[in-house]
Design a protein around this nucleic acid. Structure first.
Length: 943
RNA sequence: GCUCGAGUGGUGGAAUCGGUAGACACGUUGGACUUAAAAUCCAAUGGACAUUAGUCCGUGCGGGUUCAAGUCCCGCCUCGAGUACCA
């Protein structure tokens, strides 16, 4: 029998599907284990070999856990709302649902080819109405919830309303976006529906607000902070500008402290935790209020609040700076400065985010003409406007302490403002002194002579006494903008009753995405849903009806925005537990059984997006009692990227002549991508294929190397269609089989690391499978026997079991593959045919190469699938080695060999001591008192 | 700038607790089988000198601790990732 992977793989894939081998039940006597992959966005390009890396790792782990006797949940689905399908729809008029469907089918086909053990009965698609019904439901829960700071948890809105009815908002501790004016119970009762809603909006966990947003004109939509990279959109790299718009926001800031603190509970990669920590950006300091000096043009005294981490330097303040967007700018500006200020504000608002970031070195600003009063000295402090102060952080205003902050220092130098020195004995003639250690405050009234720590505490205390400020913890994280001006996303379950946003009840969900004639914004600039003719809500029938029926009595307009991409991915892990439930997102029984994800595998690019939002929603659902855990994934692994190895040909400038890499010799050439499929492992170009590739290359001339070949240049780049370096898993499966692909992807290197793909290397794992096969089969059939295995064979097997188990538990899948290779080589040279060895070996390799393992298992005479049974094989580990030689070296010169038994015995210690005595005497005559020995290794010597 | 991570043969990478550095694989070279090729199998493969037997040098650089350092400590250099006027 020959190893025919095509036959074997299609046979077992069919078998697994027909028998629902990997279907997980929501209850079992076995312990549960939940292995999850980050579900993909089904793009039109299909999968390349980089995509399945994480899926292969999680599949190995899932299969391994099944063998260890766990009831394993291992689902897959699609994050199928998104921009590419919509942009394709704009270009071609094809409905995004159709494109998405086609892409999903393609993905499914590709995934099936690799032989994953997913429970497909639980598949979810974020764009299907059955699914987004629950996305809308969670939005509704957030809409009807507020954050109680006293209990530090989210609460249903009903409790807030009843509080308002009895106390107004007096002594209420809730998280709100801005400070809410005080009102009494009777004020509340007297307020109109609109008035009450305006108040509630300030408390709801999702709320409508006029916010500065990142507007991307090219995409025609707003973007969240994490969707912008270096000032341009993550998708497409388009320009992003700041703009004020009425938008839905999510009050994630209420959860900042818990999101930060609970990172400690998670077994997640440290870099990922670090970037979440940075993103949340906690800093301790104080809020300080500066009162403005009354003036002819502004009689009113305004309170300008600033946040500072250094209240100890308050006596070093020589000016204040407001962000150009600060609300007081126009009010405090003096008539004389009006023109200059207006010009400056306009100029900064016109600059894109990118421009502003690009030249952080250019100092710009303008004096407002107004002054504030120093809270302690009462001295007038000039108020400046400067774009180095960001509207989005803190209060959008700073107290400038030029001697202690480099930006304030530069600004002061540039505009010739005074730089008072309040640090004892520190030279600030060249730059600011920003360190906190070793400073003693000087020229600072009651703070003079105090070191940093004491000055800080004292300053905050005095501010509180004076009523000019208080200690405060500030967070960088902003509330997340939740509206997108797009078609292909979840509609909001919201309609507007005389302008009051009103929630549609769960009983009438889902509110399905309407049909539109075109997928672009309307002529009036409204989002694409503005094109829908049936997009109004009838409160009597609780249905979507024609816009013509809008009468503002029973029929009202629906929200035109849709939800962002991260909405659907923020709870899907819970939905998998019970994905066909039509009554609830997940039944109580199912979520009690599965609890949380035990192992989550996916890319690190989601650190400050998906992974933060998902934690936020999980905490919210936990507060309301819908899920039993406040964190959704116990352990997380970031798989690295598999990069492509691009090939380059070099065209002499202005000609159609291509020069082989070795012959360039400083001549002017243009490097052009050549498709990697036309290049062999020795970097030689298939010239005939290259000429046929493109019309313009049909008559190309070539300068060849001595051997008559054209050598290409190589470079490692991201795998992408435009770089012609994409390798498809289908092609690999066709040529070498899925098992070779799986083993090779694991073998390439550590899971977390990024590594370049090199198709040539796959012959290694392919050869391994063929060698493995030959242990069980020869051309005429099976070759196993029932003879007793030899000691050597047992040793090889158990060594392998031990090592592979350790490797898999520590997610070192790459070394596990090497261990298999060594094992097979040893068994081959031992001439092993014993069933007692071959049986466990088949089980051992089955997580990695499941198809061939099934075939070997069947070949050994077993009727059932290897995947269906549970075997304790991974639990049995025997050490067969009894003794081994260990070297003792000294300064790289002397080498003695001692033989230690594997057990921890007196003899072992003595032998080691003697060896070391010899070494010592030989050199310096020093004799160690003690040698600490563990089985097999000498660790340490104490003198 | 800040935070984190990584530097080991021609290449991807092993070395899990400080204990024979370079496992395993690719590639390369030589050989066997073959009319030939593919496939398969065998051997060699860090560098230098010696080619019998060995010797010396080798884990980014410079120091240190230790009987012993790729591994620990101090100082640098380079690369990668994240973040960036965060007050």
């Amino acid at each position: 029998m020959e190893y025919n992977f095509r036959e074997i793989e299609s046979k077992w894939q069919r078998y697994w599907a027909d028998n629902k081998t990997f279907k997980a039940e929501n209850n079992s006597l076995k312990p549960k284990y939940y292995v999850l992959d980050m579900f993909p966005y089904p793009s039109g390009a299909g999968l390349h070999v980089g995509h399945p890396l994480g899926y292969i790792a999680s599949d190995i782990y899932a299969r391994y856990k099944r063998h260890k006797g766990f009831n394993v949940l291992h689902p897959m689905g699609y994050d199928s709302f998104g921009l590419p399908a919509e942009q394709y729809a704009i270009q071609t008029g094809q409905h995004p649902a159709l494109t998405t469907n086609t892409n999903i089918n393609k993905y499914r086909e590709q995934l099936d080819k690799i032989g994953f053990s997913f429970d497909w009965d639980r598949e979810v698609r974020t764009s299907s109405a059955d699914y987004y019904k629950w996305t809308q439901w969670i939005f509704g829960l957030l809409f009807n919830a507020w954050y109680d700071k006293k209990q530090d948890k989210s609460m249903p809105l009903a409790s807030l309303i009843s509080y308002f009815e009895t106390h107004g908002n007096h002594s209420l501790e809730a998280v709100t976006d801005t400070e809410v004016a005080l009102f009494s119970a009777s004020d509340w009762k007297a307020a109109s529906a609109k008035g009450q809603e305006d108040i509630l909006q300030q408390y709801r966990l999702t709320y409508l607000a006029e916010t500065q947003v990142n507007w991307c004109p090219a995409l025609g939509t707003v973007l969240a902070n994490d969707e912008i990279i270096n000032g341009v959109s993550e998708r497409g790299g388009h320009l992003v500008v700041r703009k004020k718009m009425l938008q839905w926001s999510m009050r994630i800031s209420a959860f900042a402290e818990r999101l930060l603190k609970d990172l400690d509970l998670l077994d997640w990669p440290q870099p990922l935790k670090d970037s979440q920590t940075n993103w949340i950006g906690k800093s301790k300091g104080a809020m300080v209020t500066f009162k403005t000096q009354a003036s002819d043009w502004c009689l009113e005294i305004l309170d300008i609040a600033v946040f500072t981490t250094r209240p100890d330097t308050i006596f070093g303040v020589s000016f204040m700076t407001l962000a150009p967007e600060h609300e007081y700018v126009s009010r405090i500006t003096s008539p004389g400065q009006k023109k200059a200020v207006a010009a400056y504000v306009t100029a900064t608002s016109l600059r894109s985010e990118r421009d502003r970031m690009a030249d952080v070195k250019t100092i710009s600003g303008v004096f407002s003409g107004a002054y504030a009063l120093h809270p302690f000295t009462g001295a007038p402090v000039p108020i400046w406007i400067g774009d180095y102060v960001l509207a989005g952080y803190g209060t959008g205003a700073v107290m400038a302490v030029p001697c202690g902050d480099q930006r304030d220092y530069d600004f002061a130098k540039h505009f010739n403002l005074p730089i008072p020195n309040i640090f004892k004995g520190i030279d600030i003639t060249q730059e600011a002194y920003a360190q906190k250690d070793g400073v003693v405050i000087d020229h600072s009234g009651f703070l003079t002579g105090l070191p940093y720590k004491e000055a800080l505490t004292k300053a905050i205390k005095e501010l509180e006494v004076k009523g000019s400020g208080f200690g405060k913890v500030n967070y960088r994280i902003r509330d997340a903008v939740f509206s997108r001006q797009r078609y292909w996303g979840e509609p909001f379950p919201i309609y507007y009753k005389q302008g009051v946003p009103t929630l549609i009840d769960l009983a009438y969900l889902p509110v399905a995405l309407p049909e539109v004639a075109k997928y672009m914004p309307t002529e009036t600039g409204a989002p694409p849903l503005g094109n829908a003719t049936h997009w109004a809500w009838c409160c009597q029938t609780n249905q979507v009806v024609s816009n013509d029926l809008i009468d503002e009595k029973t029929v009202f307009p629906l929200e035109l925005n849709t939800m962002p991409g991260w909405a659907g991915s923020s709870f899907y892990f819970n939905r998998y537990m019970d994905s066909s439930n039509t009554k609830a997102m997940v039944s109580e029984a199912a979520v009690d059984y599965w609890q949380e994800v035990d192992l989550y595998i996916g890319g690190s690019e989601h650190a400050t997006g998906h992974l933060l939002y998902a934690r936020f929603w999980q905490k919210f659902l936990y507060d309301l009692g819908f899920v039993p855990k406040g964190e959704f994934a116990k352990k997380l692994i970031n798989q690295g990227m598999i990069t492509g190895t691009s090939a380059f040909v070099y065209r002499l400038e202005g000609t159609n002549t291509f020069v082989s890499k070795g012959l360039i010799n400083r001549r002017k050439v243009q490097a052009l991508h050549a498709d990697v499929s036309m290049v062999n492992a020795a970097d030689e170009l298939d010239i005939i294929a290259f000429k046929a590739w493109r019309v313009e290359y049909a008559n190309a001339q070539f300068e060849l190397e001595d051997k008559g070949v054209y050598t290409v240049g190589r470079e490692v780049e991201k795998m992408s269609k435009s770089k012609y370096n994409v390798v498809s898993p289908d092609a690999i499966c066709d040529e070498y089989g899925a098992d070779s692909l799986r083993l090779y992807e694991m073998f390439l290197g550590p899971l977390e690391q990024s590594k370049p793909w090199n198709t040539a290397g796959i012959t290694g794992t392919y050869g391994f499978i063929k060698k493995l096969w030959k242990l069980y089969f020869n051309p005429s059939g099976t070759i196993f026997n029932t003879e007793e295995p030899t000691a050597d064979q047992l040793k090889t097997l158990h060594k392998t079991i031990k090592k592979v188990t350790e490797d898999i538990e520590s997610f070192s899948f790459n070394t596990a593959v090497s261990t298999f290779m060594i094992c097979v080589n040893e068994l081959t040279s031992q001439g092993c045919k014993s069933k007692d060895i071959l049986e466990p070996l088949a089980i051992l390799v089955s997580p990695y190469a499941p198809h061939v393992a099934e075939e070997l298992w069947a070949g050994l005479g077993h009727k059932s699938s290897i995947s269906l049974a549970s075997f304790p094989i991974f639990n049995s580990v025997y050490l067969v080695e009894s003794e081994k030689e260990y070297p003792v070296s000294f300064n790289g010169k002397m080498r003695f060999k001692i033989t230690l038994p594997m057990d921890f015995s007196k003899d072992a210690i003595e032998a080691a001591v003697m060896a070391h005595e010899k070494t010592q005497q030989h050199l310096e005559g020093r004799i160690p008192k003690k040698v600490i020995v563990v089985p097999g290794k000498i660790i340490n010597i104490v003198e």
